[in-house]
Design a protein around this nucleic acid. Structure first.
Lengths: 343, 343
DNA sequence: GCTATCGTCGTAAACGTTTACGGAATAGAA
DNA sequence: TTCTATTCCGTAAACGTTTACGACGATAGC
């Protein structure tokens, strides 16, 4: 069932068959029809290995996720994102493959392996740290890649990011409007650009709204349920607890809700809870429904793929070839978890 | 940096270099050392395309997930599973790639494409329906594959599944012990083997415990939050609502909790809620904490990979070569969502 | 000293595809 | 008719790797 057999079956040379299948112009319309029909009838499809060996391309883009990420953050986020990415690539015959990286393994080694063994034509990284050596490595080798979330330097590679600045502004705007003056923030490891940006924006917006910045109200915690639970416990133990808490990572909110529930307190009545994370399927079903931010993750994924395509020589012309770096806005979805007035 | 360049750099033939790298015995120890050192120094890694073209193998196993699945069920489940699968395969130099299938596309076509283009050496399917043509296709072509969840016929391919029978027994045992006599069940589409099995086990166990089977208490719903919400709403509207509800799909529980909360009712006090799903990170943080079942998903993933490896000619000898089909037991994790006595 | 064996390595053929190149047939122009 | 341009197609090389085969020298057995 190789191209040779198909050619022999048609009494045509393999060169012509290949040209017919790949849509080259220098082939008779009648011949092309015959070839296509025979290929469909015999279930022929070109072998990936042979093709990629010849033309040095694999038609595969790899998405790197660490299991650390998937165990501590919202997996749905990446599923939706991946769906968008994949659909966009599919339009160009590219497949998306997801590599799950175990936490112990060096992420740089994994990237090196993919590049050196030519396991993918391009790469998408989902989390970048401030001192991430993978970016330098990839840029140095001229390997096409894009990232979800910008890195510290901004960099000269394509990326998509979310507008945490305006989200934080909207969040604090809203909370201040309700009369809150002690607004807390629970972030993850500020080694990640994301959490660092959040902290900066938080400080800036507090000041902008004439509120005091109390460093004790900024807690760093794990971004899952347990972390949120602990953070909330710490807040409640304070002499003067915050009246509102912002959780950028929604899974931490679940822990915070549990903590409050155990203390006989109710989110949205005793403490305002607001999440700067993507609106999840769970959010409207929490008790009370969680105020958070909405974003079109599927569309974001597609756009991220477009940005990467634009940086790949093969596809650049179809996409203008310019460097694409975009910051996507959020849409605040007000619900009941923070909808009350202080005093 | 191909093998040719590496060979030229060492003044050795490429044949010897290849043998040295692949651990063939007929190469001098000293030469092998030189080759390995040079390869590491020059950052050489064999090209995947060339290798797989020659030996007809890709060292890639594909896992097929539908986005339908990921949007309606627990994504964490598959992340954990995938992690185990990947780790097991990694020990043999195999990579796991995850294919996200859009709901519109025919899953069979996707499978055909992967097989015909030789995009993977083996396949793992995560959801099989009763009339699933993919199984016949793969079996007919002799393509190695395994499934998570058994299909109707059982089949002669390797699979892992969960012991829903014993889970249902434990669940109804527990609820009956608390005095419940009207126990409801909310499943997904019984076209899936899983949901069908659940319904069967449910009927059987009710009868086994001397409880009446009321078909009105068996509701089919979407397996996400919205579905659970609707199902619970229907129950509450009944003349004689159930005193306990079993939700095999945990995301539906979130919806049910919300429904109860809005009705001023509390799970674990007014209605017993029990989930036959895997224990999730959220479960202990719900209010009240959810009773469900625990399972070692990572280990299950590893074992599923082992089962597949055992069916692949290349690896069969290392795994005994026998057909592996296993049903894994659950461990009941009793929490507060159902911990009350009726009357 | 001749042959057989062994350890080591080089040579070259394959794997399935794409594509540069050239050739044959046809059509159009003179 | 002859020359040229065009259309279509066949031939063969190339991609990077693995491996069957043979060759070479050294060692051992006789």
């Amino acid at each position: 069932m190789g191209i040779k057999e198909l050619a022999r079956h048609l009494n045509i040379s393999i060169g012509t068959v290949s040209r017919a299948l790949n849509g080259h112009p220098e082939v008779n319309a009648e011949t092309r029809k015959r070839v296509l029909e025979a290929a469909a009838a015999l279930g022929y499809a070109p072998d990936q290995a042979g093709r990629s060996l010849r033309q040095g391309t694999l038609n595969v883009v790899a998405l790197l996720l660490s299991t650390d990420l998937t165990s501590k953050t919202d997996t749905m986020f990446f599923m939706e994102l991946s769906r968008g990415i994949q659909d966009q690539f599919a339009e160009h015959g590219l497949d998306l493959v997801i590599h799950l990286n175990k936490p112990g393994l060096n992420m740089l080694d994994r990237v090196k392996r993919i590049v050196e063994r030519r396991q993918a034509d391009a790469l998408i990284l989902a989390e970048t740290r401030d001192d991430d050596p993978r970016l330098d490595y990839l840029a140095g080798r001229g390997f096409p890649f894009a990232t979800m979330g910008r890195s510290w330097s901004g960099g000269s590679h394509p990326w998509m990011d979310l507008d945490f600045d305006s989200a934080m502004r909207a969040a604090i705007d809203r909370l201040a409007g309700f009369g809150h003056r002690r607004v807390a923030l629970v972030t993850g490891d500020p080694g990640y650009r994301l959490d660092s940006m959040l902290q900066d924006a938080y400080r800036r917006e507090l000041i902008g709204h004439g509120l005091a910045v109390d460093e004790a109200l900024m807690i760093k915690a794990d971004t899952h349920e347990e972390g949120g639970y602990k953070a909330m416990t710490d807040f409640l133990a304070m002499a003067e607890p915050p009246t509102a808490v912002i959780f950028p990572h929604y899974r931490a909110v679940v822990g915070a809700y549990a903590c409050l529930s155990e203390a006989g307190l109710q989110p949205g009545r005793d403490v305002a809870i607001l999440s700067c994370s993507a609106d999840t399927a769970i959010a409207p079903f929490m008790a009370p429904p969680l105020t958070c931010f909405r974003i079109d993750l599927y569309g974001l994924g597609r756009r991220l793929a477009e940005a990467l395509l634009a940086s790949m020589p093969r596809f650049a012309e179809g996409y203008g070839g310019a460097l694409v770096q975009e910051i996507w806005p959020w849409e605040l979805v007000g619900r009941d978890s923070d909808g009350f007035h202080v005093r």
